[in-house]
Design a protein around this nucleic acid. Structure first.
Lengths: 187, 187, 187, 187
DNA sequence: TATGAATGAGCTTTCATTCAT
DNA sequence: CATGAATGAAAGCTCATTCAT
């Protein structure tokens, strides 16, 4: 039941927004009553936190796996971009909720999510710094800014990426990486 | 008074979110009463639309100016990125509201804003396509995707850019453009 | 201007109801502003009172004229019914407002209107009582109740009478009187 | 609770009018809160509709019973007039609300009520037409107009009928019928 | 586990009215 | 005469939350 509540909520939050979705909407979608909701969650905000936690922890785990499996900075970077796009493709509503509704978490929860989100970014930062160290990547670029640019480009995709569109997440990732590694300019 | 209401609202919407800000909060900040608000705006949503319109139309105008003033694709691209960053630096709360609260517009207004936002993107698209045509840019990259990547990276900045941080908007723009034009990879 | 305000108000009150019509609606219909309204009327209620007064005083005057002009009870009765129907035909919205929105007058005004409305009824009562006295009408019917029945039947017509319908106010009045004088039963 | 809300509302709507009665007034009279009201009714208008439906459906049912029980047109007519008066006597506030506040229903609901109200009228129409057919009633009177006159006279009674007055509903009905069947004129 | 009745605080919005200009 | 900005009180309604059963 808890799983079902989360599932329906992600869908509704993604489609209509956190504030626009009432507890009533959620339980109506499940054929239960509000009491049931409050048996599983202390509050609406707690449910939102659970959704956020699952999303970011899933990302962090996938990131750890990538770092274990691949070795070169380029390979790691590609895998991370691809992994992020796969999340947007396969759990688009979750991504929408994660990126868009974060502001509705309470201060404490927000701090927690920020910490994890920052950890993810710093891991990526490290990958790029390693690439600079190993001679794969240029050393005259600000690593922090570049990391933020890459993450920005990829995360922003939840705004427009359409699983049913002409290009799938693999194709988009490949173009992203090509663009980011080699640049737009003609050699 | 209308200007003052918009000003205060941008600030409050940016800080606490559209839904979290009540009309009461807005008028309290101005020392007037709710009736006054409704003398100037038909609804809260109309106010939000006005904020959105001003932001996107300002961007479109600046974009037109850039296209008139500069000629090479590279120069145009730099100016547009810099211009977007300057907006985020100088009107950070407006950017926050524009990118984050758009969902609270009604269907009709949303369509209008989408049209203008798409126009902005297509103009950028054209700049890059022109660069490809003139031989400045690579022809083996999907122009649409690259445009979206660039816009994603820049727009995302509103999440983290701090006017009081170590790097100002000019410095960030310069790194962005260097990264985007030349790529991360060592030549 | 005052006349124009009253005219427009009767129309709007009749069409949408007193409470549903705002001062704004009234002045919009005239192309002036609210200040103008309050220059001519102390309050919305005062305007309503003026409309009521004009209607009932017009009825009372017409009633007096009938009593002066005609002599037999039957003639007077016919003329009064016909006169009421003519008011409903020619000033339908006024009738609607008078019969339907009376409750929105304040206590004092209501008392005044009640007094005049009662005067009208008592005059009709007297006509019938005179008819009984002169032998024109039956003496075994309660005059008060019969008066109320006649007024009820006629006043109620504002609910359904359509000036563009098959029967005009004269035809309806004639049927009314025939029915009321001679009854429904076959002799 | 729903019943209690309806009961109190009829009383308040009858006494002060639909628009003049706030949800707060209703729930104050019951010692509950506004939330409770909206647990049972989607809107104030829905409550009004429920009141109207109950009234007219009660009338229609009573009318059907009369047609089943009695056979002559005269008996049916008397029973219907008496029944209407009994409703005004016993549920005076309901009658007041039904006849006076109908305009506050929304279009769709209004159409529904109009249909039922018209059905009631047409049934009465039929009774009179039958009386004409059977030779009980005159054939030289417009049946539609006579029906409207009778209904007008009876319905109007809600304006003045006082259960504590000198004449009870039976007495009034008897006078009404005598007047309507035999007319005012001396034979 | 689950229900459903009830709460209470807060929300957006309306509107008659005032008044300086 | 007329305007237009501003008020303030109240309205209908929503909704997260509680709790006895």
């Amino acid at each position: 039941m808890k799983e079902k509540i989360i599932e329906v909520s992600i869908d509704l939050f993604g489609k209509h927004g956190f504030t626009e979705t009432s507890i009533q909407d959620i339980v109506d979608g499940l054929g239960v009553t509000k009491g049931t909701f409050y048996y599983y969650f202390k509050s609406k905000e707690e449910l939102l936190m659970e959704i956020h936690l699952r999303y970011i922890e899933d990302l962090l785990m996938s990131q750890r796996e990538i770092i274990e499996k691949t070795k070169t900075a380029e390979a790691r970077l590609f895998d991370m971009v691809y992994m992020l796009m796969k999340h947007i493709e396969g759990q688009g509503q979750s991504a929408r909720v994660f990126f868009r509704e974060m502001q509705h978490l309470n201060e404490e929860h927000l701090k927690d999510i920020f910490k994890k989100r920052d950890a993810f970014r710093l891991n990526m930062n490290q990958v790029i710094a390693d690439g600079v160290g190993s001679g794969e990547f240029r050393e005259d670029l600000d690593v922090n800014i570049v990391t933020l640019a890459i993450l920005g480009a990829v995360n922003w995709s939840y705004h427009w990426f359409d699983p049913k569109g002409a290009l799938d997440e693999k194709a988009v990732s490949t173009i992203y990486i090509d663009f980011m590694l080699n640049g737009l300019k003609k050699a």
